[in-house]
């Protein structure tokens, strides 16, 4: 069975192409699946997270995956970030250091994830020259995404992440994909609310809404991310189930996709040219907290 893959950018069309791949083989077992990349002339490397998640999910059903006809430019980027080493290719050194490697984590791997972000991003000289405040906020943002996946997804197949610095665009994109129950089901199971997939994402990003129950409060992760990218001039994009949601330049847009992603993908795009200090307008002291 062959699936022709077209260009993959981190936009609705890119996601439609990937979920089309999943929809085609979702019920296949012990099948040989060939992803024909002969017509893929561009691949936003951060999209390796959802792509890898889908391939892992299909592989977990006993299918054998092969990626064929990969064009040299695309092969170079997917080799540099380590993605193709998961599919039998040799690793290639990332000379210009623009990738944050593709990795799969288990839910208990918080510390490995923290070390990965620290070593593969924060300490690398080649990465964009950002202020200390922006670096800190970026790092904490990606931890928030990972924590969200750990706390909410109930995934048993893992969490997939990948990032890419685009020097010409002055953007740094980082994606975390999980193969969990998705936001719509999570909201339904915990609150009884029946929403469409994109409405469920919108609900989860608003005000004090949270699906957390029990002794530990929650409901801040996605709001903190949204606040940060709004100030930074960046973007947050969430795909969950068959819903697409984005926040860019303070504007939220959400709509249904034609099929389901088998989990949730959160991508944060930061504007690396941002020189804000992220200081607060009203200074807090330690006695103001409780």
């Amino acid at each position: 069975m062959k699936y022709p893959l077209t260009d993959i950018r981190h936009n609705p069309t890119g996601f439609e192409t990937l979920i089309g791949l999943y929809a085609k083989y979702a019920s296949s077992k012990f099948t040989k699946i060939e992803v024909d990349m002969g017509h893929t002339t561009w691949f936003d490397a951060d999209m390796c997270a959802p792509f890898g998640a889908i391939l892992y999910c299909l592989g977990a059903q006993g299918n054998r995956i092969s990626l064929t006809q990969i064009r040299p430019d695309v092969e170079r980027i997917l080799t540099k970030n380590g993605f193709l080493t998961h599919y039998g290719r040799a690793a290639l050194r990332d000379t210009y250091g623009t990738t944050i490697p593709y990795q799969r984590f288990d839910v208990k791997d918080d510390r490995y994830f923290a070390a990965y972000v620290e070593n593969k991003f924060v300490r690398r000289m080649e990465m964009p020259k950002m202020s200390a405040a922006l670096t800190k906020r970026f790092r904490e943002s990606v931890f928030e995404i990972f924590s969200n996946a750990v706390l909410h997804s109930q995934t048993t197949l893992g969490i997939f992440s990948c990032g890419q610095f685009f020097p010409k665009r002055n953007t740094l994109d980082f994606s975390v994909a999980d193969l969990g129950i998705g936001i719509r089901r999570n909201v339904k199971e915990h609150t009884g609310l029946v929403l469409s997939p994109d409405e469920a994402i919108d609900w989860a990003t608003q005000g004090r809404n949270t699906t957390k129950r029990g002794p530990i409060p929650g409901g801040l992760g996605l709001k903190l991310l949204s606040d940060f990218v709004s100030k930074n001039g960046g973007r947050i994009q969430i795909v969950s189930d068959a819903g697409y949601w984005t926040l860019e330049k303070g504007k939220v847009d959400h709509f249904p996709l034609s099929a389901e992603f088998p989990g949730t993908v959160v991508t944060v795009e930061i504007n690396t040219a941002d020189k804000q200090s992220y200081s607060l307008s009203s200074e807090l002291t330690e006695s103001d907290i409780f």
Binding site: A114, K136, R139, E140, F143, E144, S147, N148, V150, L151, P215, I216, P217, G218, L220, G221, L224
Partner: peptide
């Protein structure tokens, strides 16, 4: 580095 997930569990709770 601190996250809301850590602080919710450590302090919020």
């Amino acid at each position: 580095s601190l996250t809301s997930a850590f602080l919710n569990a450590a302090i919020g709770q």
